[in-house]
Structure formats: C-alpha cells, structure tokens
Design a protein around this nucleic acid. Structure first.
Lengths: 195, 195
DNA sequence: ACTATCTTGGAACAACCATTTCAAGTACCC
DNA sequence: GGGTACTTGAAATGGTTGTTCCAAGATAGT
C-alpha cells in the first residue's frame, strides 16, 4: 500500500560518504548533502534519521568499502614485506593522486572535529586501528616465516610502528606532501626490518 | 589622549590558544572565546581583527611557546638517541596526562578542519614539519657521531620516519591511546636504529 | 576642567545551521 | 478504482554563527 522510495539509498549514502570524507562532518552541512545527493531534506531524514546517524552510516561504509578491503588484501597477500610495501604504495597513490587526492583518510580525519566526541565514532576508530595493526602484523609474520626479517625484530611492535606511520602519511598527504617522498620514507623504514 | 586597554592582550591570546588547541578553530566560537578570555567582543575584534586572524595568532603562539622550545631542546641535547627518546617521552606525557591530556597537538589538529584550507596555515604546518624533522635529524647525527647507530642507517630518512611517527602519536593520543603502549612503540622503533 | 581619542558593553545584524511540520503527491494492495 | 501508507517538496522553526554598530565610559595631554 505504501509508496516506494524514488531514489537509491545506497547511492545516496555513497555520495554522503564522499562528501563527509572530503570535508568532514562538521564542515559539510545538510544543505550540502541535499545538493550532493539530489534528494530532498524530508527523504534524507526519513531514510537516515539525522546528520549524526548519516555520518555514522557513511563512516561505516567507508570502513567496509575502502579500508577493510585493503586490510584484507594485505593480510591475504603471501609475499611478506613486498605486500606491506605495496599496501603503502597503494595508500599513498590514493592519497596524493587521482579523484581523492588531498582528501586524506576519512578515519584519520575523524580523529578531530565534532565526530571525535561521539563514543560510537571513537569505537569505530579503535576498531579501525586494531584491524590495520593486525593486518600489518599478519603480513610481517609471513615475512618472518620466509626469513625476510632481522631475527631481533618483534613483528607486533613493528606492526604498531607501521600503523602509526600510516597515520602520519595520511595526515601529511592532506597538506600536499610529495608522494615520492612519502613512499621513500616508508621504503627506508621497511629496509630497517630486513634481514 | 586615548584610553588604554583594560586587559592584557598576551594573556587573552594564551587563553584563545588553549581554546583553539583543545577544540579546534571550527568548533570554538567567538562566543566561546569571549567566555574564555573574559573580555568583550568589541575588544576582541579591535585587538585581533577577527576569528581567522585570532586563530593565526594563536597558532603562531603555539609554535613559538610550545613546539619550538621542544625542538630546540632536542637539537641542543648532546646525547643522541637518549635525547630522541626523551623528546618522545615528554611528548607522550603531555598528550596523555596532565592539563592538556587528550588535546593532541594543535599543529596536527590543524591538518584537518577549516583551518587547513588557509594558505597561511598550510605554510605554518610545513614550517613546523621541517623544524621537527630537522631537530630529529640533528639529534640523530649526534647519535651517529657517537657510534650509537647502525652503520647502514641514513639519518635523514630516519628523521622523516620519526616525524611521521610523532604525527601518529599525536593523533592516536587524542582518541585515548595508552601512554605506555605509545612509548613502547617509540622505544621499539628506536631500538631498530641502534648499532 | 575640557577635549580628543581610544576602549568598552551590549544590542542588532544577516546568514546559516539542523530539524520539524504539513499539505500534496504517489504507488501498491485489496 | 478506492483507500491506505508511504514519499516528497517547501516553508517554517528556533538556535547559533561571525561581524558590525553605536552610545557610554575612560584616559592622557592641554
């Protein structure tokens, strides 16, 4: 009996995700979301419930569609150190060139601003950190098994270091840091791990 | 002939600095500045010119009073690796405990949000990055001279790595990261540099 | 004491914010 | 085809934003 939606909620969510990714939750107004998605205020509120909940949904979508696939590929790659290097290579490429250049990482961006005060967002950030660190840890354990690592290197500690390094890369890329320089720093760091 | 100011501009600037440091430029309103400084809107605008210019002044004050003294101490410390370790120890202590716990670094915070779009702010962030990296480089060169470093380690590359690591520390500390864990990560990283 | 020149308090401003409301429109089931 | 349950458009709400304006107050030189 009811009318059906005149738009695709998933497509609208993707548009909102990109908007919040690029501009942050605080700077992107509902008016901007309306303009970006093309749908009406009423439809927005009826479908997503409000700005905060829409941001939550967008952040979850980013984690599911952007971050986690990269983590999974890193963890499933069987090559060890080259897998880690390629992970950072892909990260830096996305951050410094192409459609999303200068946008940074939506999760890293969420560490500041209004979104940061929300307990649910903080939990998502902690989740993200754990997943990133664990994927790096897995890849480093593969490298250890294949004898690619210095004997004295602790893979857990090295994974934590690389995770923090990734935050630094994401942060500086937003200020226009040079891609070659960032990748060189990562390469130099990984060279320290080698046998 | 004129009247004189009924307040101390430098004290007011310090209050504004702390407000912007903790909450960011976008989230702290002029009303908040008025409340924090105790002085009137008119006096604020007459003295500092507007919100953007006030934020500029506050950020410059942060660099001059907070960041640069730490950089100078690091560069002037003659102990090499222990100096680097103590630099990070002090950083983590400020970020995770005491009056400014959870505030992060004002410069790192400025990498996100409205302030980031301002060319003058971006230039300050690049300046800050260069100063941090150079101070680390200087300390590492001291370590190299004293034979504390592995022969194959390039001090320039290692300084860049540590700078990015510091950004990661500042970022994660805002989300409540554990001080001991952060310091352990730094210590483990520095251990890789050792001879 | 008078005046010129600044500071100060507080109201007023227009623009924007997220959200709500409601009438009008629309598609499905019976 | 009628009725019902939903969607949609657009206006309106109450609050906050940064900034401006102006009268009232205060100080230093004459």
């Amino acid at each position: 009996m009811p009318d059906i939606k005149h738009f695709d909620p998933e497509l609208a969510l993707e548009r909102a995700e990109r908007l919040f990714w690029q501009h942050g939750a605080a700077e992107a107004s509902i008016q901007d979301v309306v303009a970006a998605t093309g749908l009406n205020r009423s439809s927005l509120y009826a479908t997503f419930g409000g700005k905060q909940q829409l941001y939550h949904a967008a952040l979850r979508r980013y984690l599911r569609h952007r971050a986690q696939p990269a983590f999974r590929q890193l963890a499933d790659d069987g090559r060890g150190l080259p897998a880690v290097r390629d992970f950072f290579g892909g990260l830096i490429a996305v951050r410094c060139s192409g459609e999303h250049a200068g946008w940074g990482c939506m999760v890293v961006n969420a560490h500041l601003g209004t979104e940061h005060h929300d307990p649910e967002v903080r939990a998502l950030l902690d989740d993200h950190h754990r997943q990133l660190r664990d994927a790096l840890h897995t890849a480093l354990d593969v490298a250890r098994r294949d004898g690619q690592l210095s004997p004295h290197l602790a893979t857990g500690a090295a994974a934590e270091t690389l995770a923090l390094l990734a935050y630094g890369v994401n942060l500086r890329s937003r200020n226009g840091a040079d891609a070659d320089s960032l990748l060189q720093t990562v390469t130099d760091t990984l060279a320290l791990f080698g046998a």
